[in-house]
């Protein structure tokens, strides 16, 4: 059984059909990158996986359990799925430590004593153990994004979703975030990420998914697809994003 099974999912906003029958499996330990033009439905697909959006038909299974906004155990499901957004979305009024430990404490994953240790251990993984007492506003974009990743890690997720997490960063800050993600990949985290970082898609991912007009247009081994795109759409997309 795959960790995530997306089966013929359709999603529309009013009359606009954004996902037109998407099917995709994510095995445990896989690093899946989703690429595709703006508006092709990449973010929507990610947001359906943790039921931030409701789907109109089809089914999404997470560890065999059908996911929806009305499911029993919605919160328990979300505690297992970390998601990082382009805009960091740290809580501005909390220190970095509080940002990272809020959810583990409120969901009973740790007590107050354990929280400090937990914060240190996840912040160490993203190289920010010295920022415990800082506020988000005092950090660079790259640092904030690493805290956002640490905040998810503190929940020991089974799956991590990333939606263009380096797109809002100054170019010189992209590397530090990608490095953290590569390390997570190396440690066996299951990851699904939407990205424009073609090097990451080619070299780190275990599967590449090209979305086009609300469909999975092509998917497969990243190196093979980059070398041999089967459709003109992917070919032209790779041409535009060569690097």
């Amino acid at each position: 059984m795959a960790l995530v099974e997306i089966k013929n999912v359709r999603k529309n906003y009013g009359t606009l059909e954004v996902l037109k029958g998407v099917s995709l499996d994510v095995e445990k330990g896989e690093i899946v990158t989703i690429i595709g033009r703006s508006g092709s439905g990449k973010s929507t697909l990610l947001r359906c996986i943790n039921a931030l959006e409701t789907i109109n038909s089809g089914e999404i299974l997470l560890e065999g359990q059908s996911v929806s906004a009305k499911m029993d155990g919605l919160r328990q499901m979300r505690q297992k799925v970390g998601i990082v957004f382009q805009a960091f979305n740290l809580f501005p009024h909390m220190t970095i430590e509080k940002n990272v430990t809020l959810a583990p404490i409120l969901t009973g994953k740790t007590d107050k004593q354990g929280a400090r240790k937990l914060a240190l251990s996840v912040l160490e993984r993203v190289g920010l153990a010295d920022k415990l007492k800082a506020y988000p506003e005092q950090l660079s974009g790259g640092q904030q994004q690493r805290v956002a990743i640490a905040r998810c890690l503190a929940m020991s997720p089974h799956l991590m979703l990333f939606d263009e997490v380096t797109s809002a960063l100054d170019p010189e800050l992209v590397g530090e975030v990608l490095k953290v993600m590569e390390e997570m990949a190396a440690q066996g985290m299951t990851m699904v990420l939407v990205t424009h970082e073609m090097n990451f898609a080619r070299n780190v991912a275990t599967k590449l998914v090209f979305m086009h007009q609300g469909r999975v247009w092509e998917q497969g081994d990243p190196k093979t697809l980059f070398a041999n795109p089967q459709t003109p759409e992917l070919k032209s997309f790779i041409g535009h994003h060569a690097g």
């Binding site: 328990q76 799925v81 969901t107 998810c152």
Partner: peptide, 13 residues
Amino acid sequence: ASQIEAGLCLGLT
């Protein structure tokens, strides 16, 4: 709304 979303995604009520 992204703040609310971030909280819900962490599994908070």
